[in-house]
């Protein structure tokens, strides 16, 4: 049987990509001084750590310390998302190039890009001396980072709307404000709301981490327990965080689904 041959330059492309990937990983591994025996040894070390976490520390005292911290993370994430969505909503209209003139849209987009480039943790420790150790710092950091990300996502939603309703409003004599309230907002609201909830899920993970620099939340508790080598309690912190994140994800995903797909109509 005669099979068609693969074109030659495709083969060259394939081999060069493969060798590039291998070379890059070897170069990185050599630079980081990662040797084979360290890699082989790693699962054993991780196993020892996980083994030390069980049985979990389920004492009353542990829970009375951990549970408030876990909920603090939840509140930080929610308040940060509220700040982010509140400010990003008007900004996203400025950034959408079908709603504002070219130069305003471009400038706003660049500002959003710059905001987005700073990770929450870096924002958090810059704010730390000003706003103090505590959840407020974390909330501000998460809120500001969310303005950047939500602004970008929402403006892209606004740019992708159907122009039909806008024309209908214009032809019946509606003003620019009418276009906004009857033409754009009803179209984009479901998607933007679901982005807010999605951002909340991401922020929850971020706020769990913020405690590392002392900006409130459960991260502080985890790093303390790990430093004091109290592994059972660190395990409890981890399990509590996982439960919180899984629950929040499930609830938020269900609401997002309902918002986007609408109610199931039984026929």
């Amino acid at each position: 049987m005669n099979l068609p041959k693969q074109p030659l330059n495709q083969k060259i492309f394939k081999y060069s990509i493969t060798s590039l990937i291998i070379l890059a990983s070897l170069w990185s591994a050599a630079g980081l001084e990662i040797t084979l025996d360290r890699i082989i040894d790693a699962p054993k070390q991780i196993g020892i750590l996980v083994g030390a976490m069980f049985p979990l520390d389920l004492s009353q005292e542990a829970f009375s310390r951990i549970i408030p911290k876990v909920f603090e993370s939840l509140f930080i994430a929610w308040a940060g998302t509220v700040i982010g969505s509140f400010f990003s909503f008007p900004i996203s209209f400025l950034a959408a190039n079908n709603f504002t003139k070219g130069i305003v849209s471009k400038a706003t987009k660049q500002i959003l890009n710059i905001i987005r480039a700073f990770p929450e943790l870096i924002l958090a420790f810059i704010f730390l001396p000003i706003t103090g150790l505590g959840p407020l710092t974390g909330t501000l950091a998460i809120g500001i980072h969310s303005i950047g990300t939500l602004g970008k996502l929402s403006s892209e939603v606004i740019e992708g709307i159907d122009e039909g309703p806008l024309e209908a409003i214009k032809s019946s004599g509606g003003s620019k404000i009418n276009e906004l309230t009857f033409g754009i907002i009803p179209q984009v609201m479901p998607t933007i709301t679901s982005y807010w909830l999605y951002r909340f899920e991401i922020n929850l993970r971020a706020s769990a981490v913020l405690g590392v620099v002392g900006a409130g939340g459960v991260g502080q508790e985890l790093i303390n327990q790990l430093r004091f080598r109290d592994f059972p309690r660190a395990g409890t912190v981890l399990v509590c965080t996982i439960v919180l994140v899984l629950t929040a994800d499930a609830v938020s995903a269900a609401i997002r689904n309902r918002i986007i797909k609408g109610k199931l109509v039984k026929s």
């Binding site: 943790l121 769990a208 981490v209 590392v212 985890l222 790093i223 790990l226 965080t241 996982i242």
Partner: peptide
């Protein structure tokens, strides 16, 4: 569900 920095700490 476990954030990247938690992995790093562990």
């Amino acid at each position: 569900t476990i954030p990247d920095l938690f992995w790093a700490m562990m």
